[in-house]
Amino acid sequence: MRKSHRFFAAACVSAFALIAAVPVRAADVASFYKGRTVQVMIGFSAGGGYDIYARTLARYMGKHIPGNPTMVPQNMPGAGTLKVANYIYSVAPKDGTVIGTFARGIPMEKLLGRTVGQQFDATKFTWIGSVTDEPSVCVFWAASGIKTWQDMKTKPWKVGGSGVTSDLDIYANVLRNMFHLPGRLITGFPGGTEVLLSMQRREVDGRCGWSWSSLLSRDKHLMDQKLVTIPLQLGLEANPDIPGVPLVIDQTNDPKEKAALRMIFSRQVMARPFAAPPNLPPDRTKALRDAFDATMKDPDFLAEMKKLDLEVRPQSGLKVEQLVKEVYAYPPDVVKIATDAIKVAK
């Protein structure tokens, strides 16, 4: 009895200490968000992959923010998501009532020499996190005879692309430029699915840049029936689910080239990024990041994502921020190797 009394007292004290330890600020945050709406700006039109990620996040994240604001998803497509990135950076109120998502490559564009229309500094966004990282792969139609990385280096091949700023084009160009591969890039397809269709027609041999998760969830039958081969993984770390397939980063021993590759493929780590405007009040930054992390562990959210066949391998806001800063801190000679590598090679 005594024991339990003492336990009760201790619990009370520690509970009180806990409440007291959390700065009064938390109450401020809760009273700020109470009754407000937080807009989730989506740089794509309704229905795409990014859109589903954002809408599902919006449905669950609100209850993890103190004050339980309503999260309202809103599509703002345009200029390959530059429009929404600019909006979040410079127009949206800097009070924690707007977060948003844009193409994973957008933060690196400036570094790679494309600055037209950019009104933001990628390192200064308030990064909230990325719902998942997404290893990407090179996929070839099996009948093309390209089965291994060795084949890619020795036999001629054609891959499809969908415009010079798309991942498909960037990755294909990097491989060809840096490793002097005997391949060609045929670009101008409307998107990845059209490239796949073209592979089936045997117009092109493959595509470099296919997110592993969407390959699994949408076109697993191609692997089951051994219609496609995977000679190379594109990312920063080898994915244990893709055994025996070499990783692009490991294909060079030159530390500078390695760094340049890291710079280019880092976007796969922040595959579904969410960011808020720069210079948020620190307590609200913390509230949003904590809420994001909590949502990633929310069983209801996870069940929903599983139902939708969407991967969740969360990357915290801090990690994304560090990655962006790391990449932007590379010395000019590494940057030059990277920008040369993504140039269109004909």
Binding site: S45, A46, G47, G48, G49, D51, I52, P190, T193, E194, L196, L197, S217, R218, D219, H221, K307, L308, D309
Partner: peptide, 27 residues
């Protein structure tokens, strides 16, 4: 048949396919 949208409205409809865990194609 392939998940290739033929127009803007079909791009949206494709999104609805994904939303319901349906994969355009042989399935």
């Amino acid at each position: 048949a392939f998940g290739v949208p033929a127009g803007a409205s079909m791009t949206l409809l494709l999104g609805a396919f994904l939303l319901h865990g349906l994969t355009p194609g042989p399935d």
